[in-house]
Amino acid sequence: MLGALKDLLAGLVFIAFGLAFGYASLGYDIGSALRMGPGYFPLFLSGILTVLGVVILVQGFFQTEESPIGPTPWLALVLLVGALFIFGFTVQGLGLVPSLMITVFMSAFASRHTGVLGAIALTIGLTLVCVLIFVYGLGLPLRLLGPWLDF
């Protein structure tokens, strides 16, 4: 066994972020300690992050205790992320009501306990509540039906 998988992965994630930010920092003016350029502080932090990542990685190798990562709700992940992207993509074109309905309907299925009827009821209910709160209550300037639906 390689040691604690969680720590190994966490270490790699931090090293990756550290190297990526560090590489990007090199593209900016570093300057000197007296007159720091835009790259100075990020480069310094990236160095620290990379070192911390290495420490976590090494600790992971010597860690004998197993810590299982546990299940990942893949379907929920895809549905929720998809729902957010679809909202962002359609809210101006389709308008708030249709866009929100798609978003809620999709995210409802992220739960294993929700069936089609439940999802429909939730979609109608939540859309109604949101429109009442955000559009009528708070007066946000959002179109209920967007230009994509104009015929």
Binding site: L80, A83, L84, F87, G88, V91, L96, L100, T103, V104, S107, A108, A110, S111, L122, L126, T127, V129, C130, F134, L140, L142
Partner: peptide, 11 residues
Amino acid sequence: FPAIIAFASIG
């Protein structure tokens, strides 16, 4: 949680 997602998107 769908309510959280809906509020989050609009907000």
